[in-house]
Simulated assay, not measured.
Amino acid sequence: MMHLLRNARGMRVAIGAHDASVRAWWAPDRYGRLADVLGAAPPAAHAPVDWQCDPPDGGHLLLRLARDGLSVRLAYRLDDDGSLHLDCAAIADGVSRFALAAPLFNLQGRNAAVGDHVLRLAADHYGPWPGGGTGGAPLDVAGSAFDFRQPAPLASRLAWPALAHLPGFRHDFYWAGSGQLREAARVADPASGRVLRFSSTQDGCHLYSDARCFSLLAQDVQLQPGQAMRFTLAYRLGVQDIDAFDISEPISMTPNK
């Protein structure tokens, strides 16, 4: 079952009630043309299912989960400025771990390549590829292909020798500070003019990408007995001229293979 949220700008966001995932998001490009900017999202490793959903109220949707001593309350809100807020509160009776299913974006629309998408990510450390054999300690992004503090296209960074053997990004990124909702990343598509802004109260995120999509995921939640946790994420879709980005590397308009 799907629930549809709408705002005054004509945006529509479809939420899957079974796993609380964002299944579709229709958003305008620079010419006002609507397109679904989400692809099919694989389930997160620890994403729970069988959520209970209250009837949607305009741009609001409330979901609840209770299982194995874990209680989660997840509220979606679609604002008229193009922001989709996710407010999550969880408490556990025992040791628990879960993750939210992350939306996979393609700002140009489904079946296009995302190599020309330009990423700016305010992270000064990153975690190596899982199983990469380099240890688990976060590494400094300075001087590496993982330094997105100045905007750069995804494909240009994946062409660096250190990443040329990888199909995309599967890395954790970290920044200083948490608790306040702050913009951590911005992704722009030069073809459509769409821009995605990602904000979080956490101090890190996971970047996933392949040839056709990308995602910015919340960190997994790990709870000890009696521990409560709250966090907020926001994805904001809008339109911006690509010239407004101070891009550090050239954009190739050749589609990824």
Results as ranks from 00 to 15, higher is better:
Trp160Val: 01
Ala122Glu: 14
Asp124Ala: 12
Asp140Tyr: 00
Val118Trp: 03
Val114Trp: 01
Asp116Leu: 14
Ser156Ala: 12
Arg157Asp: 09
Ala152Asn: 04
Leu139Val: 13
Gly135Asn: 06
Ala113Asp: 13
Ala159Tyr: 06
Leu158Thr: 02
Asp147Glu: 11
Leu154Ser: 01
Phe148Tyr: 15
Gly131Leu: 02
Leu154Thr: 01
Ser144Cys: 07
His117Gly: 05
Val114Phe: 04
Ser156Arg: 13
Ala155Met: 08
Gly115Ser: 14
Ser156Trp: 13
Ala123Lys: 00
Gly131Gln: 04
Ser156Ile: 11
Ala112Val: 03
Gly132Val: 05
His117Tyr: 03
His125Trp: 14
Ser144Glu: 10
Asp147Thr: 08
Ala142Met: 12
Pro130Asp: 11
Asp147Gly: 07
Gly136Asn: 10
Leu158Glu: 01
Pro151Phe: 05
Gly133Arg: 07
Ala155Ser: 11
Gly136Val: 11
Leu139Asp: 00
Leu158Ala: 02
Asp116Phe: 07
Val118His: 03
Leu119Ser: 03
Pro130Thr: 05
Pro138His: 05
Asp140Ile: 07
Arg120Ile: 08
Leu121Gln: 08
Asp140Phe: 02
Gly115Ala: 14
His117Ala: 12
Val141Ile: 10
Gly136Cys: 10
Gln150Lys: 07
Gly143Phe: 06
Gly131Ala: 03
Pro128Leu: 11
Thr134Asp: 13
Leu154Lys: 01
Ala137Pro: 00
Ser144Lys: 10
Gly131Asn: 04
Arg149Val: 08
Asp140His: 08
Arg120Met: 14
Pro130Arg: 09
Gly136Phe: 09
Leu119Asn: 02
Arg149His: 11
Trp129Leu: 15
Gly135Ile: 09
Gly136Pro: 01
Pro138Ile: 04
Val118Pro: 01
Ser144Met: 10
Tyr126Glu: 00
Ala159Trp: 05
Trp160Phe: 06
Gly143Glu: 07
Arg120Leu: 15
Gly132Thr: 06
Ser156Asp: 15
